[in-house]
Amino acid sequence: MKILSIPYKLLTFLLYYLFKVIQSNIYIAYDILTPKMHTNPGYVWVPIRINSKFGLLFLSNLISMTPGTLSIDYSEKKNALLVHYLYDSKEHIVLTDIERIQNKIIALFK
């Protein structure tokens, strides 16, 4: 059963990734093409719970591809990723968003 579940998980994950990509593109296209700027950028440190190195790479790539966030730096001391966000949302929204992605990645690599 476990062998069967991996492709399923991967497929759903890929679909999720694709959805995120399209969403982020629509966001950014809207933002660029409308005359008024909605951006109000800032930084946040996001703690990491993933152990595997490949998972870390995956997460950092995925964060860069999701709407309004860009991973900048990884600090081993804090075990956290420095994330730059674009929109005037509260920090905890970004954090919960990334937390959801992290959960998915952890589930994928189990």
Binding site: F54, L56, L57, S60, Y74, E76
Partner: peptide, 11 residues
């Protein structure tokens, strides 16, 4: 000295 790049370089 980016760890992410170091991981990526392996693949």
């Amino acid at each position: 000295n980016s760890i992410i790049l170091q991981i990526a370089s392996r693949y």
